[in-house]
Design a protein around this nucleic acid. Structure first.
Lengths: 117, 117
DNA sequence: CAAATACGTTAGTCACGACTAACGCATTTG
DNA sequence: CAAATGCGTTAGTCGTGACTAACGTATTTG
């Protein structure tokens, strides 16, 4: 589970990363956003830390967690490694089919996804 | 586990999707690429099918699996939904730091004290 | 028709992840 | 110093995912 992608896949941890993306937070602060106990959040944070995605800094009696940008890069790299050119092509085909089925006022061509890396 | 991202996160299933991205294959053909039994692969394929990522077509006594482009789109959308602009920005910062080799102390992200809501 | 092939399905094991409750440790506060 | 606060840690439960072995079912082949 040291694998960044597997670590980030769990829904609660996904949300934790998103929360931390907007700025560092203490454990209690984070835990308030979840229905589970602080202990559970603490353990989730440790998993993320093991994966190198977050890190903590002591500040008084709190521990302020923050995202590790370089860890995110590795995560992104792993996602990109999975998302091969073939897969991308298949998605592109799906878009094309979708566009043809709806003649004139077709969809907005959302080509924003997946930029170069 | 009907969630596409969770379904695609498992290493074996990740590989299955990549293999199928290069073209449709039968179950035995796929199973040969793995150290586990055909039964395991069959079950993995069913999980992927439940998530709408693959589908099968009977051809004689084999079942030819192939990816579902539209399912891949949903997977990609879910990944994009997770990978917010903030996360992307943090990665960009990491790149910048890597390029400059000059660690600016104030590159911390917005510490706007957003209190509880 | 009988054997072989290509699967799906099922039962059952095993390991592990997610979670809670309780405790221990440091740090701040009165 | 004693109480309170903020966390990490541990033990133990529960659910479930991954896997194998065995069996059942179409379909092809001789």
């Amino acid at each position: 589970m040291t694998d960044p992608l597997s670590a980030a896949a769990e829904p609660n941890r996904r949300r934790l990363l998103q929360l931390l993306a907007s700025g560092p937070r203490s454990v209690t602060e984070l835990a308030e956003q979840f229905p589970v106990t602080r202990s559970a959040i603490s353990q989730h944070l440790l998993v993320l830390a093991e994966a190198g995605l977050v890190e903590a800094e002591k500040s008084g009696r709190q521990r302020i967690y923050r995202v590790v940008p370089d860890g995110l890069r590795r995560l992104q790299a792993e996602i990109d490694r999975f998302w091969t050119a073939e897969l991308d092509l298949l998605v592109a085909d799906a878009e094309e089919l979708r566009a043809r089925r709806t003649p004139p006022e077709n969809t907005q061509n959302t080509q924003d996804t997946q930029e170069s890396s």
